[in-house]
Every structure is written in structure tokens, then in C-alpha cells.
């Protein structure tokens, strides 16, 4: 697993000493590409592509897999920076003399294809682009195919860049957002009969729901499996009210965790949520700053010492699309 975000890149420094931002928008902290991308190649890549290569190669290096059976990518906006540049050229210079490179690197699947080209992977390669459930769609695909035996393993990632212009636009288009940032997350999913010591955690299930009734949604949760909920809370009532509707309607009191206070909002944010939850299970403790009330505010830290066995990561995208990813610790109890 690896992340590039507004936190220290390719690192889990955020766990105990997160960077805090006063601004409502922060770009990602760019990773050091040395040793991960050839300088001659890096010069030709847009930011999102560099970040994707860095997180993907780092994740692969930390696993025993060189050539994943599948490369499955989520991205809400794709290669936004290049798309934006192409649109700027189109509006400034008209429909002539446009640069092919910008177009070639503007489609959503540029990201997953680039990794395949670098790794020479001829296997399954798919890209999902559905707002804030892009990552979960990719993860669901990987999970289904690994369980069926169609894939032994997969590189699953989600990547979104937010340009200053898009941040400006998002103020109008995403009133539910709060602190906006960027995210690139890559992880290796492997199918095994029994957990291995090297595993970070187990993915128990992945569910995506479209406009569920709150009652139907509540039925998905039970006190035994879902006592620890990692929610996409961001402190904005337009966003958080959907979660409080859920937590107030379920018939037990789960402990709530948050992650967007340090990683921010964007279409790939749920990937960071799953990454952060997996880190908690791997380390066997909860950082104090991640505990939250359902209003998104920090709560007292007493619960942080307990050894978490399961985390259920729940995100919604403007209240319409929901995802539930259940993670389980592989460490002995």
C-alpha cells in the first residue's frame, strides 16, 4: 500500500504526526520520483501520472509481486490537468494547432494503461470513473475476480488530481466538500486461503449501493462486525448529515473514525479511507486524531488504545452512492 496526498508522501508519518492545513485547499505533496521513475520518463508525465507510478511501484515493491494479474484503477476526474490544458488551448487558440500529447494523456484510462506499459502487464486492465465510488468500484471488481479465481492478485489504485481551477469550480459543484485535496493510493490485493504474516489486513467484503433507503442501509450493519466505522466525515453538515442519519438509525453505538480531516475531499478520498483503516489494523492501534463524533469533531482519546479487529469503511458521494468496505485484522488477537 502507498499514498500520495497532502500528507508526507509514500510514508505513514501522518499516523502519529499529521500535517494540518489552515487553507480549504491543498495540493498533494509531490513524492521524490528518484528510483521509481526514470528522469527522462518523469519529464513527460503529468503530476497524476507521476504520483500513480510512485504509489503503484512502491506498493508492488512492498509485496512479492512484480507482475500483477490485474491492474484496476479508479479515478473520478481522470487526467484533469491535461484535460484542462486541452480545454484552455481549445478556448484560446480555437480548433487548430492543438497538442496531441495533451489529448493522448487526457483519458481516464491513461493512468492504468501507463502502469501496464511500464510493467509490461498484458492481463486484466480496467478503469472505473464514477464520482466518489470510483475506487470502491475498482476494489469490488478485484475482490470479485480474486474470489472467483479469475485473478490471483491485482494492483488496485485510485487517483485524482484537483487543479486550482477545479477547486474553484468545486465550491459550486460540490457544496458537501470541506477541505479539498488530492489523492493517489495504490494497494496490492492477493487471494489466499489463509492470511499470511506479510498481509496488512483482509478485505472481508465490498458493497456499493445506489440511493439506498436508510432502513436498507442500516440492515447492512451489525454490532459484531461493524463496531468500528471509518466514515467520510469532513465537518460539513451537507456531507456529515448523511452519516449521522445512518449512525442514529442503527441499533447500537459504533465507535466512529474519520480521515478526511487530514486527507481532504476528492473523488479518490475513499481509497485513502481504506488505506488509513488498513494501516490502523496493521499497527494495531488507532491514532487519537482519527476518533470522531458524528459531527466530525474530535472526541476523547480513551478508545484509541483498544486493539481493533475490524474496521468498516463507509463513504457516500453526495448522498446518492454509498460504499461499505469491511476490513479485518490478520494479527493474532
Amino acid at each position: 500500500m502507498a499514498q500520495v496526498s497532502c500528507q508526507q508522501p509514500l510514508s505513514d508519518e501522518w499516523f502519529d504526526s499529521p500535517r494540518l492545513y489552515e487553507e480549504m485547499y491543498a495540493r498533494a505533496v509531490e513524492p521524490d520520483t528518484r528510483g521509481l521513475i526514470l528522469p527522462s520518463e518523469a519529464r513527460r508525465m503529468s503530476r497524476i501520472l507521476k504520483r500513480t507510478v510512485c504509489t503503484s511501484i512502491t506498493a508492488l515493491n512492498s509485496s512479492a509481486i512484480d507482475h500483477p494479474d490485474g491492474i484496476i484503477t479508479g479515478t473520478g476526474m481522470g487526467c484533469m490537468e491535461n484535460s484542462e490544458k486541452f480545454l484552455i488551448d481549445l478556448s484560446r487558440f480555437g480548433e487548430n494547432c492543438l497538442k496531441p500529447t495533451l489529448f493522448m494523456q487526457s483519458t481516464h484510462n491513461t493512468i492504468g494503461s501507463l502502469i501496464a506499459i511500464i510493467l509490461k502487464c498484458h492481463g486484466y486492465n480496467n478503469t472505473y470513473s464514477h464520482k466518489g465510488i470510483s475506487f470502491e468500484s475498482a476494489l469490488l471488481d478485484a475482490w470479485l475476480q480474486i474470489r472467483s479465481g479469475g485473478l490471483r492478485n491485482a494492483l488496485v489504485g485510485s487517483h485524482d488530481e484537483v487543479t486550482p481551477f477545479m477547486d474553484l469550480v468545486m465550491e459550486s459543484t460540490h457544496p458537501e466538500y470541506s477541505f479539498v485535496s488530492e489523492a493517489s493510493v495504490a494497494m496490492i490485493a492477493i487471494g489466499r486461503d489463509a492470511p499470511d504474516e506479510s498481509d496488512i489486513c483482509e478485505i472481508e467484503s465490498v458493497r456499493i449501493l445506489h440511493r439506498p433507503d436508510i432502513a436498507d442501509l442500516c440492515r447492512m450493519f451489525d454490532a459484531d462486525h461493524d463496531s468500528l466505522l471509518m466514515l467520510g466525515l469532513n465537518g460539513n453538515p451537507h456531507n456529515d448529515s448523511h452519516y449521522s442519519q445512518l449512525t442514529e438509525s442503527i441499533d447500537y453505538a459504533p465507535l466512529l473514525l474519520r480521515y478526511r480531516h487530514i486527507f481532504g475531499d476528492n473523488f479518490s478520498a475513499p481509497a485513502v479511507g481504506v488505506y488509513a483503516a488498513a494501516k490502523i489494523l496493521e499497527k494495531g492501534r488507532i491514532p487519537c486524531h482519527m476518533l470522531a463524533n458524528d459531527d466530525g469533531n474530535p472526541t476523547d482519546c480513551r478508545a484509541s488504545n483498544r486493539h481493533p479487529q475490524r474496521i468498516t469503511v463507509v463513504n457516500h458521494c453526495d448522498g446518492s452512492n454509498w460504499s461499505i468496505v469491511r476490513l479485518k485484522s490478520v494479527k493474532p488477537n
Binding site: G78, N109, N125, N126, Y128, S129, H130, S134, S137, L209
Partner: peptide
Amino acid sequence: GRFTMVTTTSTA
């Protein structure tokens, strides 16, 4: 209608 799940593939 009210589909239970909606998602999008984008591979050009």
C-alpha cells in the same frame, strides 16, 4: 428506475 448499484467504466 431505482437500480441497486450504478457505476461507470472508462477505458476509452
